[in-house]
Amino acid sequence: MTIAIEVDNVSKQFAGLRAVDSVSLSIPQGERRVLLGPNGAGKTTLFHCISGTHQPTSGRIVMFGKDISNVSENARTALGMGRTFQISNVCTDLTVMENLLLGMLGTTSQKWSMFRPVTSDKELIGKAVASLERVGLQGRENEEVKYLSYGERRQLELALALSSNPRVLLLDEPCAGLSPSERTHFSKLVSGLSREITLLMIEHDIDVALALADKVTVLHRGRLIFDGLPDEVQKNADVKEVYFGRL
């Protein structure tokens, strides 16, 4: 089986804090992996190391057999990685459509085109409209993002991550701050994604997480303490101790 993402003994040191401590995991292509762990466990830092936002202090990140440890964040996107941010990170001064066009152009050489308006590419616009429909933002194309609700921004965040047709998708707490009905809607969106896409997701909502996960990885204080099936995670003694203290 092809390994989509391999994290090989990765550590990340911030001054006196070892946020991620010798973590190794490997995610086969097509798997949906959920990262769990209490606050400060190092989940987002590990995410940043995988996406290229942070350079790991030591260790390697391998994607489809290629060592990408020294590949820049934007080049990783070109290799097929897409991500969402824990705190919505979309271009708030632009319209929904403009955000999406930027996402679709980002991995093509067309992003350098200077001699014709971006709106003249009808095929591109059509694709953008279709992917907005996919996340439930149809009819909002020309709205400036700053006037979008929180939930809609999360939807746009997902649409942006998908806009480059990634092979590996990193979702950092996609449901954080959403209402229960929005959560249901969102987890349906995620579970409806193509099984071709390898998914690595941080999620605190245990119901959402276990419903989506093929496998679960638990981090605690930067260390990996559990790696296994969703059914096993709630029975695991170490995980219980981390969440509930020693019983």
């Binding site: 936002t53 990170n89 271009c91 708030t92 001064d93 632009l94």
Partner: peptide
């Protein structure tokens, strides 16, 4: 304009 609005987002989009 995307860079003006959010550099980190633009980087993760491949720019």
């Amino acid at each position: 304009r995307g860079i003006k609005s959010s550099e980190s987002r633009m980087r993760s989009l491949g720019y």
